[in-house]
Design a protein around this nucleic acid. Structure first.
Length: 283
DNA sequence: ATGGGGGCCTGCCGGC
DNA sequence: TGCCGGCAGGCCCCCA
């Protein structure tokens, strides 16, 4: 599920439940996920007030009154379930404990936030709030695509001379932080650039048009998530799942949606991952 | 230094 | 119905 727009949607959904509230208790049901949880994580969370929720790339950062910051990464299958609160006009009761409920935060006032992650590629960590950006997982990340430091000059500089396909380059979190397999496919389709092209071979015009398209695709996806979040259509209070209308991702064999294009979306495998593109209008 | 591939996990879906 | 292979939106690590 989680690329930048999904993580941002989860952050926005958690904010009204967590921000300004105290974590009354934390249940930690295993030693860790992708790597071990920090020592005494439950105790360090208990009693802390959540001052604010931030996002960096695909990470959610919860700044706590204890001068520590909780880092949350959803991996491939991580979900945050909210319960015990009014979601829209409906009250969401606490569900029975489920398989893969690894961490449960009991929020003062009765809400509950459950981190469920079947594949356990997710992560949680705690670090001092000052200098949180220096965390090993965050320090080397490239710029936020929706931020000011991401621009054509930066992108051109990072693509120059790279003998890797542009698809792989855009997935590289050191070049740009937050894109994943889906949105890279979508961006390249809108830009009419084949994912198979080598990064170093892009013209400056092509690099220039990627920048606003990356912003556009992400902004649209966040808007779509935000609107589906607003009325909380999800019966179980689960955040981050909504129907996106993808133009190419997962649409092998479908006609290319580009107006006037008669191509068919094909699936290829690059670095072991599926790429979807139209060989006719993406060159 | 850079690029490619393997591995981490579980669940689900389609085909036989 | 049951089993099996293939697939999954992320990321780190190692090797050439």
């Amino acid at each position: 599920m989680p690329e930048l727009p999904e993580v941002e949607t989860v952050r926005m959904g958690l904010a009204p439940v967590m921000e300004g509230r105290v974590i009354a208790a934390a249940e930690v049901n295993r030693d860790g996920l992708r790597f071990p949880f920090p020592p005494r994580m439950a105790e360090r969370l208990t009693g802390a007030r959540v001052l604010g929720l931030r996002r960096r790339s695909k990470y959610i950062l919860a700044d706590l009154s204890t001068d520590e910051t909780l880092l949350i990464h959803l991996g491939m299958s991580g979900r945050m379930l909210i319960s015990g609160v009014m979601l829209g006009e409906f009250h969401h009761p606490h569900p029975a404990p489920a398989k893969h409920d690894h961490v449960v935060l009991h929020i003062e006032g009765g809400a509950r936030v459950t981190f469920n992650d079947a594949r356990r590629f997710g992560a949680m960590d705690l670090m001092p709030t000052p200098g949180a950006e220096a965390h090993p997982l965050l320090a080397a990340l490239g710029p936020e695509p929706l931020g000011n430091t991401f621009d054509e000059t930066w992108l051109a500089g990072r693509l120059a001379g790279r003998a890797t396909p542009v698809k792989s380059a855009l997935l590289d979190q050191h070049i740009i932080a937050g894109l994943g397999n889906i949105y890279v496919c979508e961006v390249l389709h809108r830009a009419a650039i084949s994912p198979l092209r080598l990064a170093r071979d892009l013209t400056s015009q092509e690099t220039a048009r990627l920048v606003p398209l990356i912003r556009e695709v992400l902004a649209e996806a966040i808007a779509a998530g935000g609107s589906s979040l607003k009325d909380y259509r999800q019966a179980d209070g689960e955040l981050g799942y909504f129907q996106h209308s993808f133009r190419v991702y997962g649409r092998e064999g479908a006609p290319c949606p580009t107006p006037g294009c008669t191509g068919t979306i094909t699936r290829t495998v690059q670095s072991g991952r599926s790429s979807f593109h139209c060989p006719l209008c993406q060159r």
